[in-house]
Design a protein around this nucleic acid. Structure first.
Lengths: 345, 345
DNA sequence: CTGAAAGCGCTTACAG
DNA sequence: CTGAAAGCGCTTACAG
């Protein structure tokens, strides 16, 4: 039994392990790091003492000379369910390693990046960062870095993991066109990002390819709920209402469904809604949201793998790209010519 | 311009600041910590040098003797939108302090707690932990600790922040009863937790108070989507189908809405669905989900405040409790006797 | 193979 | 008010 409000329990240090095992501190450190030149006998003794004393090395002390075995994963926000998929991937890839991920959450990654570097993260994974290119390069020169959702690297100091966003957007337009939709609008993100630029580009190009260039309409909105609602409302109440809305991410699409439902606009008959990311909400019967699957979990796995490689010495950049696929559901199935280009997962 | 793949940029240390300012390292440290006994002149010199050199103290080095100014926030998962509300509260409360929050995400907090302590967190906030009582006490003796969603502390070594879960559940039953529902079932969480115990208790007691004791039915499910779907399906397809389902959290309620929609069971006519937490999804037109508001943001703010107080020396425990309120929406509005007990936020 | 010593970047008593 | 020295818990060359 613990005391009611006792003093802090003191921590076991490497020194105590060493004295318990009857060896030097340096020897314990070597066992800890699986370093060269330790006899089996010594290793066994040390390990026995570590277990007996329930020793755990202090990451920050290790970090002062070596590594902290901690990586920072920076998520833009906690409400977009897509990031949960990425997180799952990162976690599963790290499970087999000694590294532990800590998450930081902020749309403006900049300050958080500094905070993470101050805390000796061995490496960072940023998602869809809106930092200027120079800033990213500067970060990469301070700490091993992998970016998820950043095109046009323009520097060799970091790795990237992406899906082909331009193709993903093209698939959406192609799918909608095949289902008889023509006046296809896009809701994009107000904040600059190479990801949404690519999606906008794919959307534009594919519209032109189908002779719909004059129907191209991109509305940009922040992620604030009220702004999104306003943007959708403006589209749905306009004189020549689009017959389909492509939203840059599922969360926005779900908000669009809400506004449409509120206005009595029928989905998919009056308007089709399509999202991006194929998150868990797409499958729900109240949504049945057509979306683009970019395998968030796979992106996370690859990002973690690349980061660990960077930390352990690789310097040549790698850029991993996933091919997205459209997953057709009822939210875009007006015509009887049901799309053959995708299927539920 | 940075080199293509240059070496790591070296970090400015306190020593360099000291030499630039022409003072001792100890003096810089004092300025850094706003400690006693520093003349204005010295402080100004030091601060000028810190800015000029763009100096940032290394948290892990500080932590070796003092604090890291980092607190760990452990979230059970990234998919339940309620935790985003708590996170917002923690962040806003910490914004005025020097502390920075790092998130860890895991249902089984145990390992993550150790990982956070190894990384010298100054304090921890755990949400709805399923740790045994002794384990919690043990953690609290190693690091300042605040628990969100944990009743029956039974120890004085940590603080808690809660809403009155028993009352919240009572409000749900009361509201449903007032709207003409009688066969009210509850979907609870399979994993043990004092939060769900309290909600179950409130549900049971209020059912009895309304003479519905024999209609009491609690089904427990994990949070795995398939399990939830099975549980809901079993309820909706049973011989004497409940006319209302109280789900222990909104995310489950949204999944219940999906299953009901799929089965062609009409909400709220055939069955009412009520959630808990009043997250952003409740307001969406495809849900209009009645829920219990427990002010996640406020809980987060209070937790952060209490934790900082603990870190800075308070030892007497504090237990903050919010009174929940029901927010009635269409998902529970069968009868014309619309509830007067709540309103949209 | 093993260990004594220096050092990582800070803070903390302690002198002056 | 200011600073020199010791120390936090590790890792890293370097001797032996």
């Amino acid at each position: 039994m613990q005391k009611k409000t006792g003093p802090r329990t003191p921590r076991i240090t490497i020194r105590e392990v060493a004295s318990d095992a009857g060896v030097s501190v340096a020897a314990v450190s070597k066992v800890l790091r699986d370093a060269y030149g330790v006899s089996e006998a010594l290793r066994a003794k040390v390990q026995a003492s570590m277990e007996k004393l329930n020793y755990r090395p202090l990451a920050s002390a290790r970090g002062l000379r070596g590594r902290t075995y901690t990586i920072g994963l920076l998520l833009p926000d906690l409400r977009n369910p897509f990031f949960a998929d990425i997180f799952d991937g990162v976690t599963s890839a790290l499970a087999r390693t000694q590294y532990q991920a800590m998450q930081g959450i902020s749309v403006t990654a900049s300050e958080l990046v500094d905070a993470m570097i101050d805390r000796q993260m061995d490496g960072l994974i940023l998602i869809g960062p809106n930092e200027m290119a120079e800033r990213i390069s500067e970060i990469a020169h301070r700490v091993p870095l992998v970016l998820i959702g950043h095109h046009e690297p323009g520097d060799e100091s970091f790795d990237t993991v992406n899906n082909d966003d331009q193709l993903g957007a093209r698939l959406v337009v192609r799918h909608l066109h095949a289902n008889g939709y023509r006046r296809i609008a896009m809701i994009s993100l107000a904040r600059a990002s190479t990801v949404v630029s690519q999606r906008e580009l794919g959307y534009r190009l594919e519209m032109v390819d189908h002779g719909l260039g004059s129907d191209t309409l991109i509305i940009r909105s922040t992620q604030v709920l009220r702004d999104v609602q306003l943007a959708v409302r403006r589209l749905l109440e306009s004189d020549n209402r689009p017959d389909a809305i492509f939203c840059w991410t599922d969360l926005i699409a779900i908000e669009a469904i809400s506004v449409a439902t509120e206005l009595g606009v029928s989905i998919p008959h009056d308007v089709a809604i399509v999202g991006y990311d194929n998150t868990m909400y797409c499958d729900f019967a109240q949504h049945r949201l057509t979306s683009v699957d970019q395998s968030g979990e796979l992106l996370g796995i690859q990002a973690a793998r690349l980061l660990v490689e960077r930390i352990e010495g690789r310097t040549a950049p790698e850029h991993f790209v996933v091919t997205p696929r459209i997953v057709a559901r009822a939210s875009s199935a007006k015509s009887s010519r049901t799309s053959k280009s995708g299927q539920d997962r």
